[in-house]
């Protein structure tokens, strides 16, 4: 199977700090790839490189088999990489459909006058959100009145509609309550069911990754410390890796010593 995204030996230095130290990432079409790791592991740096926010210090990136060198997020978007950040890039006081089309509004002809085609924007926004599982009644309701899960869905639907076939989701479940988290995971599975969109799902919640991901890559301190398919890794190993493996054993004996 051809890789949709391939990152090879990617290094990113910020002065003395090596945020990424030779990281490989392979994403297959139509799959969910969980990118796991603790705070400071380098997950954010990796996705910012992949979404064109800043260039790698060295290393190679291929999208759909072609080498790319992004100079801006716009370049990444042009080859179909859509990133949904934690802040979602939504204006809470504005209507759903205006948010969906923010910066890319549809206008009535002649477009010279800049008159918006609200009816079409409403229709498309509702339809696209319904495709991945939320059915809201009123496209004019302010985004602030949506639940956290619905907002996430809106941002994902928007990224897909505007051409993303690689969808990067930055901690989509981390700021949500239990019920909302499940809603987002269902949304992610519905996107996967469309078959033509690869998802890079950044999380530090291993049970979420285990629920939806086809493949995993674990980062720790800028290096890949584990990778594999769903079948390769059982829950125990994941938890072990997430907690820092051997460090956890050390911590355990230290705690025992303190308690002793």
């Amino acid at each position: 199977m051809d890789l949709v995204v391939e990152m090879k030996s990617v290094v990113k230095r910020f002065g003395e700090l090596r945020a990424l130290d030779g990281v490989d990432l392979e994403v297959y079409p139509g799959e969910i790839h969980a990118l796991l790791g603790d705070n400071g592991a380098g997950k954010s740096t990796l996705i910012k490189i992949l979404s064109g926010v800043y260039p790698p210090t060295s290393g190679e990136i291929r999208v759909d088999g072609r080498p790319v060198a992004f100079r801006s997020p716009r370049d990444a978007a042009d080859v179909g990489i859509g990133t949904v950040y934690q802040d979602l890039a939504l204006a809470p006081l504005m209507p759903v459909s205006r948010n969906f089309f923010m910066g890319r509004e549809l206008m009535k002809k002649p477009e010279l006058f800049g008159v918006l085609d609200d009816a079409r924007m409403d229709e498309i926004a509702l339809e696209q959100m319904k495709l991945i599982g939320i059915d809201i009644a009123n496209p004019r309701q302010p985004v602030g009145t949506l639940s956290g899960g619905q907002r996430q869905t809106l941002a994902i639907a928007r990224a897909i509609y505007f051409g993303a076939h690689v969808l990067i989701l930055d901690e989509p479940t981390s700021a949500l309550g239990q019920k909302q988290q499940m809603q987002v995971l269902k949304t992610i599975m519905r996107v996967r069911a469309r078959g033509n969109i690869a998802i890079i799902f950044i999380t530090h919640n291993e049970s979420h990754a285990r629920l939806v991901a086809d493949r995993y890559t674990f980062l720790s301190l800028g290096e890949v410390i584990g990778r594999g398919t769903r079948d390769d890794l059982v829950q125990k190993d994941i938890r072990q890796l997430m907690a820092g493996g051997a460090e956890l054993e050390d911590l355990k004996s230290e705690i025992e010593a303190l308690a002793g």
Partner: peptide, 24 residues
């Protein structure tokens, strides 16, 4: 209420970061 410029005014005032990220 009805033009792209108007919508952009609300967008930059509502969340300038979001507006910038979406190309306004």
């Amino acid at each position: 209420a009805r033009t792209r410029f108007g919508s952009h005014i609300y967008a930059v005032g509502g969340d300038a970061t979001a507006a910038l990220a979406t190309g306004v």
